[in-house]
Amino acid sequence: MSADRVVIGGSTGFMGRYLQERWRRQGREVVTVSRAGADIRWSDQAAIDRAVDGASLVIGLAGKSVNCRYTPANRAEIVRSRVDTTASLSRAIARAAAPPPLWVNSSTATVYRHADDRPMTESTGEIGSGFSVDVARAWEQALFADDLPATRRIALRSAIVLGHGGVLEPLKTLSRLGLGGAHHDGRWPVSRGRRAAGTAHLPGARRGRQRFSWVHIEDVARAIDFFERTPTLEGPVNASAPHPVDDREFMATVRRVLGVRIGVPMPRWMLELGAIGIRTETELVLKSRWVLPEKLTEAGFVFRYPTLEAAVRESFDRAAAAQDAGP
């Protein structure tokens, strides 16, 4: 194995695929870890130990998608898949004769409270409550649990990541059907069980005014490169573009880039019924996430896609180029 080795845990998802392709093009050795379809399986701790020992960078991205219904079984797997894989990487680093100098592990900007009054930064942000926040806190606790004096650790509190694929694909389809309007919050009956589990979304911002923080996938990759060159950065870091928008502006931008003139607003009752039908949760579009990249900005990081329209346009243009290229 080469000295410039990157270990990616959770390599088969949207971000993992992008990063490994990018770093292999740059000539770096990339070792992938996943449940299947990777160089190493999560069940093989000895192989993970060998890969991590001497690596220049470890990336932790693993975790069951939150794009599902928050049933008891799914909630347990969402937490377990994040905490167990993070602990596995931590054990490997603790055992390494030559521990990696940097470990960047996924977290989420959802750790902050529903915010429509002011933005959340690493220094002034307020941690929220509920199941999604509990997941983020457990994830970060697993990252920082062990004493790893030779390895700098960063919890990447990512906003919604845009790029070719990911969240934009279903929104593209809905917009072309005329259903790409703003997502309107409102009242909806909530069971006692959902309240107890912390999965109930209570009415917040109205008429699509919930804030939408986002970041282009290229800037996430560039931020990781920046972390390697900037040893002062550690702890939680917000991965979010410096110009968040609200939900109305986000959906209007998607429609404008696609050339779609009409977008019917989606009221809460329609969103809830649709979420039940496609087995997801309305929190993903109704929670107001207002996040700013304080640490990155103060450290001198320059975003390639600081504004939304350029990020959406690049994502759709790249998708069209890939389709034109064919198999």
Rank of each mutant, 00 (worst) to 15 (best):
S43F: 14
L258R: 09
K295C: 05
P119F: 07
Q141E: 11
S43T: 15
V245C: 10
V111W: 01
R209V: 11
R209H: 14
R153I: 10
R207H: 13
A155K: 01
G163D: 08
E281D: 12
R137M: 09
D219V: 04
E309M: 09
L143G: 02
S11P: 02
P99L: 12
F316A: 06
R222C: 12
L258V: 00
W290R: 02
E126K: 07
R206M: 13
V111I: 15
G63Y: 06
E294A: 04
H164A: 15
A150T: 08
S288T: 11
D44M: 12
V104S: 05
W269M: 08
K295V: 04
D219E: 05
I160M: 15
V31L: 08
G277L: 06
V7P: 06
R206C: 08
F14R: 05
V58H: 09
E140V: 00
R222W: 10
R22I: 11
H114K: 12
A51N: 05
C68S: 12
G198A: 07
W42K: 02
K287Y: 08
S123Y: 03
K295G: 08
A47I: 11
N105M: 13
R17L: 15
R229G: 11
G125R: 02
G163C: 10
H184R: 11
L271Q: 08
R207V: 13
A239L: 15
G16R: 06
E314R: 13
R187H: 14
G163L: 06
A310R: 11
L308H: 01
G63I: 01
H184V: 09
S129R: 05
A150M: 11
A321E: 11
A62S: 08
R41T: 15
A320N: 10
A97Q: 13
F303W: 05
E309I: 10
D39N: 12
V264R: 14
L19Y: 05
V220M: 09
E281R: 07
R206E: 11
W188C: 04
G63Q: 03
L284H: 05
D146A: 13
E272K: 00
V66R: 00
P236E: 01
L148E: 03
